[in-house]
Simulated scan of single mutants.
Amino acid sequence: MSELKNLKVMIVEDEKNIRDSMAEALESSFGEIITAQHGSEGVKKFKKYTPHIVVTDISMPIMDGLDMTKAIKEISSSTPIIVLSAFSEKEKLLKAIDVGVDKYLLKPIDMDELLASIAELAKRKINALNDVEFGDGFKFNLSTKALYKNDEMIALTKKELAFVMLLVERIGTLVLHEDIKKHVWLGEHVNDTAIRTFVKRVRDKIGNETIKNVPGLGYKIEF
């Protein structure tokens, strides 16, 4: 499935040997493999790299996989997450469901089963990425990185495109000013006044009501 090459997968596992072997098994099928050794690092790398699918262990130091899942789902509720664990207790399964885990696999992991599970969730993600519809007749294709209004493409600058894509990838979720600075200005210094001026220019192209402002915090696009 050639579309898998467009996807980023993050593996969160505290045991280095397992983490490395999983990354090696997946790297030929996906465009990019990101690794983290515990949940706290996983959240940080999710914010930095915005992977399309997350595979995580449960029992890890600093922050476990279920707490990390909850944090990631608050950032992007549509990101598929597969949890791997040696636990079979009812409480763990119930908590996994409660925090929004998409798939739960028990250790020892069968690599073919893991690959099949990721491929299944990837298909869903690819279908979701084809066209994200929002607002009054807007449609964004994350594969081609193009924004349309009633099937007519809207021209965007490089920064405008990065901003709209960030909001669409996290649609329905507030994107903080710091994340906008990091993803749109790539760490360059920019003040809040410049951001407001920039957002106003984008709103002039796609409408004030499409991009919601949460004063002092950031912006979001609703479904």
Rank of each mutant, 00 (worst) to 15 (best):
M63P: 07
G39C: 02
K90Y: 11
K16Y: 11
D151L: 11
K181H: 00
K125Q: 14
D67A: 14
K48D: 14
G218M: 12
V164W: 01
A119N: 15
V132Q: 06
I206V: 14
E113N: 12
L7M: 02
T197N: 11
I154Q: 02
E120N: 13
H52P: 00
V9A: 03
F163N: 04
N17S: 15
V55R: 05
N213K: 14
N150V: 02
A116P: 01
T173L: 01
M111N: 10
L142C: 09
L93Q: 09
P108V: 01
T35F: 06
L94Y: 03
L84E: 02
S76C: 14
S88R: 12
A122W: 00
P80V: 10
D192L: 13
Q37M: 15
W185H: 07
A162M: 10
H183W: 11
Y219E: 05
A96K: 05
S77W: 08
E27K: 15
G207Y: 08
K103W: 02
H38F: 08
K47T: 13
Q37C: 14
Q37I: 12
K92H: 13
F198Y: 04
M165G: 01
S78C: 12
K139F: 07
K159G: 01
D110Q: 03
K92Y: 11
I221G: 06
S78G: 13
K103G: 04
I11H: 07
G172D: 05
M153L: 13
V9Y: 01
Y49T: 12
K44T: 13
I34Q: 06
T144Y: 10
Y104P: 06
L166Y: 04
A23P: 02
V54A: 03
K123A: 04
F87S: 06
S40Q: 15
K90N: 06
L147H: 04
V164C: 03
V199T: 04
Y219L: 11
F138Y: 14
A36V: 05
V168G: 05
I221L: 08
W185P: 05
K149I: 08
F140N: 00
A36M: 02
I154V: 10
K212Q: 14
K212A: 11
K44F: 12
I62G: 06
D57A: 03
S28K: 15
R203N: 12
S77A: 14
I180P: 09
N150P: 03
V43F: 12
G172V: 00
M165W: 10
T69Y: 07
T157N: 05
T173G: 12
T173N: 14
V43K: 05
A122R: 02
K181W: 02
V83H: 01
E160D: 05
M60G: 09
V175Y: 01
I81P: 00
M68R: 01
E27L: 01
D204W: 09
P108Y: 00
D179P: 00
A128Q: 13
K45I: 06
A23H: 07
H177Y: 15
S29M: 15
L66N: 03
L7K: 08
K73H: 04
S78K: 15
Y148G: 02
P108D: 08
K16M: 13
D67R: 13
T173Q: 11
K95I: 08
K205A: 06
M22G: 07
A96R: 08
L161K: 13
L7D: 00
N141E: 07
K182S: 14
K73C: 08
I211P: 10
M68N: 09
K182R: 14
F140R: 05
I53A: 09
H52I: 03
